[in-house]
Write a protein that binds this DNA or RNA. Structure first.
Length: 315
DNA sequence: AACGTAGACAACCGCTTCAGA
DNA sequence: TTCTGAAGCGGTTGTCTACGT
């Protein structure tokens, strides 16, 4: 362990503390933490770490639990709807990751932060502009976000087409699809401001009226989580905890099978945020089937648009 | 097959905030 | 009111894996 690792928060660690483990968590450690919390609930993290016999800091235990082991952590690709929401909320609040995470049930601030750094900043780099620059923000708002909306609509349309297969004529399908699109916008609380010009899809602004602050059922805040699932009964409803595991590549899903909370329960929007509660899962067959294919927005058309936009800015 | 590189994500660090003594 | 420890938070780093050469 290097010198930096021996210090935390400007204090030298004791000899006992130097014995603390670092780095990736093992399956045994995960199981110990899960079992301890399932039995005793959460408490003071430092005390918990000691009592559970984990040679980890309380901080490390807390992070592992909140970001990985917690039963309602949602893993896997960020959906198109989630991407749209992240872009919108980040444009509003900046790097307030925990605040943004409140709007994405099951997603952690860490995950959103990682998404932003690896995907969004990558695009800024491709465009050779700063992620915080007006140019990039405009590109997000006027290109990326409308395109996300289009793809969400396309996914919804595809779903509608499948479910209505053989039932309608193509003309009816078109009408239905238009209704789907309209409903989607309603569901997402999106309003279209007047278009800047005819070439352009338009920007989408999230309505301000529904926020976790004014909703009594805000989810997944790391602020509030400690009071949400903290009892044995709560946890045993979610888990069946195996005694041991030899699988070093185990995921939380390998450790326990959720018994009541289904996947779809985790990924609907917080009640009160989207006017009618957006069912992410039902709208996203594209992403589930093909993985995250949403990164390739910067085609020739986009680049031309951006160039033109930047030229107008400079005039 | 071996190596290098980039991307994704888990984990850590240190500062700030908050609550209780 | 002040102090102290715990927890929260955002930035950064480390590690693993997939992919290209």
């Amino acid at each position: 362990m290097d010198e930096k690792g021996r210090r935390t928060c400007n204090t030298l660690l004791t000899d006992d503390e130097i014995d603390l483990r670092r780095g990736p968590w093992t399956v045994d450690e995960d199981l110990t933490l899960i079992n301890y919390i399932a039995t005793h609930g959460e408490g003071r993290w430092n005390t918990l770490a000691l009592s559970a016999g984990l040679k980890r800091t309380g901080k490390s235990c807390r992070l592992r639990w909140l970001n990985y082991l917690r039963p309602d952590v949602r893993r896997g690709n960020i959906t198109l709807e989630e991407q749209l929401l992240i872009l919108e909320l980040h444009s509003r609040w900046g790097n307030r990751w925990s605040k943004i995470a409140q709007y994405l049930p099951g997603r952690t601030d860490n995950e959103i932060k990682n998404y932003w750094r690896t995907r969004v900043q990558k695009h800024a780099k491709q465009l050779k502009c700063d992620v915080n620059s007006k140019q990039f923000k405009d590109a997000m708002r006027y290109l990326w976000m409308p395109r996300l909306v289009e793809r969400i609509q396309a996914a919804a349309t595809a779903t509608a087409s499948v479910t209505t297969n053989n039932a309608y004529t193509s003309e009816n399908n078109i009408k239905n699809n238009q209704i789907e699109v309209h409903n989607l916008k309603d569901k997402m609380g999106l309003v279209e401001p007047s278009l800047m010009n005819n070439d352009f899809v338009g920007s989408y602004v999230m309505q301000q009226s529904h926020t976790p602050e004014n909703s009594s059922t805000a989810l997944s805040s790391s602020d509030s989580f400690g009071t949400q699932v903290s009892t044995k009964s709560d946890l045993t409803d979610y888990y069946s905890v195996p005694v041991s595991s030899n699988n070093n590549n185990a995921t939380p899903a390998d450790y326990y099978q959720p018994s009541q909370m289904s996947y779809s329960n985790c990924i609907t929007s917080p009640p009160g945020f989207f006017p009618q509660g957006l069912d992410f899962q039902s709208l996203d067959p594209w992403n589930l089937q093909n993985g995250d294919s949403s990164d390739n927005f910067w085609n020739v058309e986009s680049m031309l648009f951006l160039e033109q936009h930047l030229m107008n800015d400079n005039m």
